[in-house]
Design a protein around this nucleic acid. Structure first.
Length: 108
DNA sequence: GGATTGACGTCTG
DNA sequence: GCAGACGCCAATC
């Protein structure tokens, strides 16, 4: 609702994530200077059902698709990732460290 | 108006 | 190295 919401930055950040790349909540929260990474998850939770944000590219620090169950379709998350070239093994991103995209690397 | 939960992360034991 | 607890802010019940 409010344009000055912090999660608006989260949307933009997630939107600019390159294809075949994934990032973590902690990276986003740290990049945006959020006090708590939970806010990122909260923002994404609302964004996924409100805007078509590629939240499937956002995983936890372990590279696990923690929020896949929260998606409209749990399988959609893995399908989308695999479609983008991301290898997902058991709801976990393979070579997560390799395809991990750091927002601070590019940023604005 | 108060209590609980929620897509997590980091520290300490 | 693994496990458990705490902290943070906001929205919902």
């Amino acid at each position: 609702m409010a344009d000055e919401s912090y999660y608006k930055d989260v949307f933009e950040l997630v939107k600019i994530i390159p294809i075949g790349r994934v990032t973590s909540y902690g990276a986003i929260s740290s990049c945006l200077g959020l006090p708590s990474p939970r806010m990122v998850g909260w923002a994404l939770y609302r964004s996924t059902i409100n805007q078509n944000i590629p939240a499937h590219r956002v995983v936890n620090s372990s590279g696990i698709l923690t929020g896949r169950l929260n998606f409209p379709d749990p399988t959609m998350m893995q399908i989308l990732l695999e479609k983008e070239g991301v290898v997902v093994e058991k709801d976990k991103v393979k070579d997560f460290k390799k395809i991990f995209w750091d927002p601070n690397e590019i940023e604005i």
